[in-house]
Amino acid sequence: MRRMSGRRKIDSGARGMALVIVLWVLTLLSVIALEFCFSMRTELNVTQNFKEETQVYFYAQGGIHRAIAELVYKNDPAIQAQRKQVEEQKKLLPAAEGEQATSSLPEEWRTDGRPYSVPFRFGEAEVRVRSEAGRINLNRASDQLLRKVIKYFVEMGEKRDVIVDSIQDWRDKDDLHRLNGAENDYYQSLPEPYNCKNGDFDTLEELLLVRGVTPELFYGKKMKGEGGGQEEGPIVGFKDIFTVFSSIDRVDVNMASPEVLMVLLGISFDMAKRVIEVREEKEFANLAELVQRVPEITPYVQDVKGFLLFKTNMPYYTITAWGKTKEAESKRGLECVVKIDPKEENGYKILMWRDAVY
């Protein structure tokens, strides 16, 4: 009896140990299964995100190429002659027929920065085209114009004079520095020395190398609107005002952004938006028409009227495109500067390409 009782105890202990082992094995298998499911889900999400990122990238790229095509058509003499012919025929037809004849031609894209939508099957691209004539030419701006522009960012004083003089020293051909400027002797004395270029700016980012120009001035900071502390204006920096692609030393009012109008004319953001709203109805033909249609701007244009233009044919354009899915869960921005030139093989040449815009 004692021997049987001992066997039962041994069998009971063995079965208990086996049960514990089985439970541990099941727990381990459950953890492995959960980890596998989690890994698969993570990989699925990564793959889905990669797919959407690739899609919106090419949506944006497609939007840029659509804008380039529109610009090529806009600058094509044959198409413009056809459009002019239709307009002349419209004047000879009754009103209803004239409108129908005009509507048969596609509407030209405006190059003042207004958005255009380019649809795709699973998403779209929002495209903006802006003529470089609407910005201030960094390589051609006079001392007077530079001082007026920099005054918007920096109060009167030595700091403003340092920036203005240093910009001119950077782009001139000699090694003689202005009163508050900088040449090689200054740049070579820096902890990480480099040479003064003594030539035109090739990119706007070169401004960050110029004495006195800080990242905050270049990339911009929030400006207060007319509401003071309650209302905030746009983020404005040198990168929004200047260009290195313009071939003129003045600014086309019909192509200028609100930020350029604010800085150049010294007006509020609300007044700049008012100019844009009036301009969208019909472009300004000259200074007199600008003052007539936006009377409140009169006191601000007298000092800068020599820097204003109202009609240019400059072939340089900045195209910004945002690709996004229909659910707007993924978004990607691209930007480029193109020159429309019939002499080029495809009628245009890409001068700058930025693969990520935030």
Results as ranks from 00 to 15, higher is better:
1 M>P: 12
5 S>Q: 14
6 G>Q: 13
9 K>Y: 15
9 K>M: 15
13 G>L: 07
17 M>K: 10
18 A>N: 10
29 L>R: 00
41 R>E: 12
43 E>I: 06
43 E>N: 08
44 L>I: 03
46 V>L: 10
51 K>M: 09
53 E>W: 05
59 Y>M: 09
62 G>W: 05
66 R>N: 08
68 I>M: 03
79 I>R: 04
88 E>S: 01
89 Q>Y: 11
91 K>A: 07
93 L>P: 13
98 G>P: 11
98 G>V: 11
107 E>H: 07
108 E>V: 12
108 E>N: 10
109 W>D: 02
111 T>H: 01
112 D>L: 04
116 Y>R: 01
123 G>M: 07
125 A>M: 01
127 V>E: 03
134 G>I: 10
146 L>I: 09
148 K>T: 14
149 V>R: 06
164 V>P: 15
165 D>A: 08
166 S>Q: 11
166 S>K: 04
168 Q>P: 14
169 D>K: 08
178 R>M: 06
181 G>S: 15
189 S>P: 13
189 S>G: 14
193 P>Q: 12
193 P>W: 11
206 E>W: 11
209 L>K: 07
210 V>S: 01
210 V>M: 00
212 G>Q: 05
212 G>W: 05
215 P>M: 09
217 L>E: 01
217 L>V: 01
221 K>P: 09
226 E>K: 13
228 G>K: 15
232 E>H: 02
234 P>R: 02
237 G>N: 10
243 T>K: 05
247 S>N: 08
247 S>L: 09
252 D>C: 03
253 V>T: 07
258 P>Q: 05
260 V>M: 05
264 L>C: 09
268 S>K: 10
270 D>V: 14
271 M>D: 12
271 M>C: 08
271 M>S: 11
276 I>T: 04
282 K>D: 03
284 F>G: 00
287 L>D: 13
297 I>N: 13
297 I>R: 11
298 T>F: 12
299 P>A: 15
299 P>F: 12
301 V>P: 10
301 V>I: 14
304 V>S: 11
306 G>Q: 13
312 T>M: 00
314 M>L: 12
315 P>W: 04
315 P>M: 06
316 Y>K: 00
316 Y>L: 00
316 Y>H: 00
323 G>M: 07
326 K>S: 15
329 E>K: 11
333 G>F: 02
340 I>M: 07
340 I>D: 06
343 K>H: 12
349 K>Y: 02
349 K>V: 06
356 A>S: 13
358 Y>E: 10
